[in-house]
Structures are given as structure tokens and as C-alpha cells.
Design a protein around this nucleic acid. Sequence first.
DNA 1: ATGAAAGCGCTAACAA
DNA 2: TTGTTAGCGCTTTCAT
Lengths: 325, 325
Amino acid sequence: MTRPTKRSTSKDVADAAGVSRATVSFVLNNTPGQSIPEETRRRVLEAAERLAYRPHGSARALISGRSDIVLLSIPTLPVQENIGRFIEELTDALAVHGLTLVTYLGGAKSRSLPDVCATTSATVVLGLEPFAPATVKALHEAGAVAVLPRHTGDGAVMRLIGRLQARHLISRGHRRLGYALPAHSAFGETAGQRLQGVIEACVAADVPPPSTVETPLDVDGAARVVERWAQEGVTGVCAFNDEIALAVLAGMREHGLAAPSGLAVIGADDIPAARLATPPLTTVGVDLAGVGRAFADLVAATLEGAERPPEVFSDTMRLIERAST
Amino acid sequence: MTRPTKRSTSKDVADAAGVSRATVSFVLNNTPGQSIPEETRRRVLEAAERLAYRPHGSARALISGRSDIVLLSIPTLPVQENIGRFIEELTDALAVHGLTLVTYLGGAKSRSLPDVCATTSATVVLGLEPFAPATVKALHEAGAVAVLPRHTGDGAVMRLIGRLQARHLISRGHRRLGYALPAHSAFGETAGQRLQGVIEACVAADVPPPSTVETPLDVDGAARVVERWAQEGVTGVCAFNDEIALAVLAGMREHGLAAPSGLAVIGADDIPAARLATPPLTTVGVDLAGVGRAFADLVAATLEGAERPPEVFSDTMRLIERAST
DNA sequence: ATGAAAGCGCTAACAA
DNA sequence: TTGTTAGCGCTTTCAT
């Protein structure tokens, strides 16, 4: 069963079809500028099919100097349901360009990303946010042709999420806002960027900046945070994400508070549990599919040498109003 | 910036250290049976370090006939937070054996798994549940040396989850159970297996089998399901997973029912939102880290040729009792 | 229209 | 102890 069924090579196909390996290569790759008789072509194709021939990825990569592999690095924990949608869409969109996406989810003791890049022979390395310059350099030295994203405009997308949250609360008449930050920041820059967006919206509306508190994912901890906001006169809270918003809701319950009257709460990311919360959670949803497609185009453009490619990810998010605000 | 900084080769290192490529290879791989003078060894190591040399994965794979790559295939949607923990642990555990784990999240239009296996030159292909025999064959033909898991004992782990759920409810005195199945079964065999475990526990306790209903992830739909159970005299419900359990809770609220008095509810997977639900959700947690390590050992054993490797994943789950039951 | 041959970066016999 | 060499599977000139 673990029978390493000997893999068929281009030579096997050539022999089976009674031609040379070169001819096989020409046929299978549709190499332009070669006129192969229809009969030969058919024989080759048939033999390849019958032998379940698949070109050897390593050999191809070795000769062409670049593989068809795109490596997506996801640093750690925040693998939410939504990221799956994003990856799926990205996979499909990249497949159209003949690229194969695989994801590396580095654990704690895990090897460095450049190492992974080298052993997988990845041509492109993708991240959720830009890599540090030193990492970019190391990745190139490890064989990466392109490393993206480059400059997401200082987290423009993330800031936009924050702005959407705050503007909604402000438009509802809230003047004193709270911001629920993740407790143990495993979210990199993201948390700061979303918060920044909230602050920007406050400034624009001439409202004081939010009372920002790290909010743990347990009822008691969240209850203490809620209490503090109550003392400060906060009436509306933006949470870094839906999970934290759920914690805030749970903390409120401890004090007999209900949203939105006791405290208006808005989350971000639109996870499935948000719709099922009590009350249903207002949140900011992102069109992951759209982002995935845009990202794929960016990769393709970069690989083709476009020097200043689009990098447009706006128009991908919208406010989803539910009962919690 | 997309400067494809020319990658250094083993020849570069050899030149820099003033030795031959073979010597470089011996030193870097600690090839046994070679006595290299400390001085030479040092020079080679230093040169490799300075040039940021990393062996070319494709070249290695080509010559050795097998890469160090393990490909984990996750069919679709159910990428919950927890799977991230599992993957991370698996990554670390495999790294100890010198293996690199990457994940393939196939989208809709995406290429076939054997294709991905061939282009990535993966040596091992992993799935969350056993692959169909035809797929296994195709994967071997695509170059996979091992394809796992083989036979999870007909979903023994999944059945165990179901048994744990039902036994808990039964021990609480419930005699008429409900089972909340996912509405659009994107969960493959898993759903049926967990349900099977519930049925087994019912049989063992001489309780009628559960009233099984597909439960949508929205409040109204779930409310209808709850109503039906109420009519049937169901007093305790096992949900396929926590998300669905959350939906059941939401549906109950529509009828003014609270858990556990109105209906006892138990989920599975212990997602973060479970703890934050109203009331906090009793669930079955799986020690993902443990499963990850066990899986890694299985891979290593198989690669080393052990014909009937362990495949033990029991002792990895436990009941987490909270207020909903 | 097809075949022969070289070579991608690396490792491992085999020589020296 | 170190260097020379062949060859992994494939693509691609260059001859035929």
C-alpha cells in the first residue's frame, strides 16, 4: 500500500510512443515553432495519459530556474475561518496563471521562512502584511523572485476597517468611544492599524480618541473592561475583531447590560458566530474573495515585471449592521 | 526591490572556501565516514554562512529522489481556528524529523491534488481523513512515497467525540436526544462518524437513537429545528460542532428557551466563541497539539518503513463541562 | 520532423 | 583528505 509505484518519466512516455524525449517535451509543452504531425502528437498525448505522466516539478524548477510555487506565510494563531475563504480564492486565481499556492503555518520551534522558501523552491513568497526588509533580503537570497506585499500603504485596508467602525458609532450619536484591543498581541501590526483608523475617524468627527483597553477572551476579564468603560462614560465600543466583540458582549452580560442600549458594540471580520450572538453583532465584513483575486493579479503582474503594480484592495469591505449597535 | 539577488550555489561556497564542491557537500551534510580537518570545516561553514548559502531544494529532491516536503491537503471550508493549532504543532513535530509541512487548501476550480503533489515534489501527502483508493494510487503515481492516514479505524476518533457527547447527556438523565447535523455537508465523512458515535452511545445505554436534523447556521432556521425537537420531546441535543451548537442556542432564544433547562446543548471542538456564549457551551475539546505530534510520529514511522504503524489518536479528547448542559 | 547532447545544482562513488 | 565525475528528469539548442 505504501507502494511507491514507480513514477513514469518523460523517457517512459517517449518509449511508449516510439519517439524521443525531446518530442515528448515539445508536444506536452506546446512548444511554439515546432511542427509536429498530428499523428505523433496524438500518440504522445495518449501515452502520457495512459502512464499518468506528470512532469517532475523539481527537474523543471532546476532547469528553468523558477518553480510554479507560491508560498503563503501565515505567521501564527489568527487562522480564522475567514482566512480559509481568502486562501481558496487566492489558490484559484493563481491557478489561472499556472501557479500553485501552498501555505506555511510556522509553529514556534519551526524553521525560518527563508529555509522553507529554499526547500520548497518557492518562486513567490506572500505574507498577510509586508515583511521586514531583512526578511525580504533573506528570502531573495533563498531563491524567491518576488516577495509581497511590498507597501500596503501603511495598512490602509486595516485603517479603513477601523474608520468604518468608528464612523458608524459616531453617526449613531456616540461621542465617547472605547476600543477593545486583543490581549496578547499575536496580530502584529494589524491591531495598531485598525485602532489607528478609529482614531482618524474620531479626529475627523471632532470626537475624543477612544479609551483603548486590552480585552481578554474570558468573561471575567471582559467584565472588568466593561466596568472601566462604564466609569469613563463610554457608550460605544469598537472591537479589534468579532471574537473580542463577543467577549465584550459576554462581559456586559455580567453587569446586566445589553447591547446596544447598555453599550453599543461593533466587531470586525464577520465570523459566523457574529450572526449568532445575542444580540447579533454589527461588524465590518471584508470581501475575501475580492482581496484574493486582487492579490493574485498583483503576483502575476510582479512576476511579469511590472514595476509599480496596482496593490488596490479598497472597495472590498462593507459595514454589516445588526442589532448590537 | 524585486531584485532577484543571485542565489549562491555550492560552487560559490567552494570557491570562497578554496575547496571543491564535494568537500562543501560533505561538511554541510555531516556526511559520515569522512574525516575533514577542523580548519577546512570551519572555513566552509564560515563561507556558507557569509554567502547565506542554502542548498537548492529542487536539486536535492532531484538527486535523492525524495524531497523533505510534506503536503497537507485540506479539502475545503471547515478551516476553523482550531485547525491552525493542529497545523502548527504538526509543523513543529515534523521539523524535528527534518520535514517541512505545507498546506494546500484547494479551491473550486483548483488543480487536482496529484498535480499539486507533482509540482511541489511532495514526498508525503496528508489528509484529515483517509483518501479514496483511486486518489491514493494517483498520488503515488505523482511521486508521493507515503499517503496518510490509511485507515483511521472507520473514523474512530470522530465516533469517540460523538460517544462522549451522548454519554454526558445520558448521564444527566436525558432519554430523548437530538442531533444537529451541518446543513450543507461540506464536512465529508466527519459528520456521519460523529453521529455514529452518538448512536452507539444511545444503543449502549438503551436509549432511542437521536432525532437527527440538519441545522442551518441562522437564527430562524435553527428556531424551526428547535421547535421540531420540542414537539418530539427531545430534552438534550448534541451538535456536530460548536458553531452549530451556537445556532441551536440562538434558535432556542427565539422560543424563550434557555439552556440547559429548556434544552441541554453540547457542542464539539471547543472554539473560542463557545466559552463566550450564553450560557457558556459544554463541548468536547480535542488536544490538537497531541494529535499533531501523533500524526508526525506516524509520518516518520511510515517513512522509515514501519509496516503497521501506531495510528493512535485516542486519549486526545475530553469533555469540557460548562453551563449549557 | 525528429534525435543527440548539454546542462541546471546537487550528491556520492570512485580516484588520487 | 580532497577532487573528479557521473547522473537525477527535464528543456532546449543544434544537427540531421
